[in-house]
Design a protein around this nucleic acid. Sequence first.
DNA 1: ATATATCGAAACGGTCCGTTTCATTCAAGC
DNA 2: GCTTGAATGAAACGGACCGTTTCGATATAT
Lengths: 198, 198
Amino acid sequence: MKEKAQEIRRTSIGAQRNPQSQEAILQAAEEILVEGGLGAFSIEAVARRARAGKPTIYRWWPSKTMLLLDVYHRQKYVDIAPDTGSVEGDIFQVLHGLLNFWRTESGGAVFRSVIAEAQTNPDACHALGAYMADRYRQGGEIFRRAQKRGEAADWIDPGQAMELIASFAWHRLLTDRLDIKEDELRRVARQFANSVKA
Amino acid sequence: MKEKAQEIRRTSIGAQRNPQSQEAILQAAEEILVEGGLGAFSIEAVARRARAGKPTIYRWWPSKTMLLLDVYHRQKYVDIAPDTGSVEGDIFQVLHGLLNFWRTESGGAVFRSVIAEAQTNPDACHALGAYMADRYRQGGEIFRRAQKRGEAADWIDPGQAMELIASFAWHRLLTDRLDIKEDELRRVARQFANSVKA
DNA sequence: ATATATCGAAACGGTCCGTTTCATTCAAGC
DNA sequence: GCTTGAATGAAACGGACCGTTTCGATATAT
């Protein structure tokens, strides 16, 4: 598991940022979040695992919160605006994709940590809010298409409709109930599809 | 603000728990959560504010998490199953009640802290999950009544429908967006009501 | 009267915080 | 080529909080 390259001590490469250290720090931070959660996430622990000095971390990340947000933004994206041809199909796809990603990849642990951090740190809360607003605007595409097809009512706010769907996924993530059965998830998707019907 | 009674030093009242200390500790814990959030919530801080000894706290609460959950369970309840005569009215009432309680009372700060704690502590997560399952079962009454009236489809799972509504409220709480305008909230209630229509 | 359990205060070793000091390494500028 | 200066990891600092132990004082229960 451990790479040889990580066992040799890194040192300065001159008057410039060492990308190997940056990568090692972000990597270590993510691993700690996945293995031990936000409770195990400390600058000391990250520095130890990355074989980096604490000043090196503090030089490039002003706080634990910012390092956490940086780890979060390195995560890969889940397609929040699939096009299956029907609203119900699209909604199911979004929910299935989100829950599955959070359950199987490292994304779940990282995102849980970001949300928890946002409850303590106003900066994290603001950053999270801005990011989510943008994603919901994007994801609202599902409903804009449905409105063009006449499948969704005009009074529906696409972004807000997407927020309701993501809210359900958040709730399952935060209560550790991502392992929803497929027929249950189909019923939820059906209900959400019903909610926008004309 | 500060009561005289809290300024005199409390002491043992014999071989039994001192209810004044218990009350002072829970009170101090709640105040700290409201004023400084979960980040300021430490056993040391609670002991200082309550003028209590740390061993006294640790004797009755095994961990910070359990003290937090105790504070949470002292909160007053929001009626999650009102009966206005229509599903849409009921849903609006539930959402309005929840958001308003979280915004104006101390309940919001405390609940945010519990959710955040649940992302770190499995005990808190399990306790929260069990509590929420029970509340959704109760709150599902709204939809059971609607089904009897023929206002809601039979394939709707009342508890699950209530979970979707609460999920939206959670999401607003966690992203610090409780100050939703009334007409927006009405649109959300309308959409949720639409989602259960036959 | 004695035993017992509680109370608050104080101090312990340990962890992590954010910062400072240090010797080392190497790019940039003269 | 030589000097300057920034970045690196290691070590140590004072401070906060952790969970625990010790302590003397208090008052119920037996």
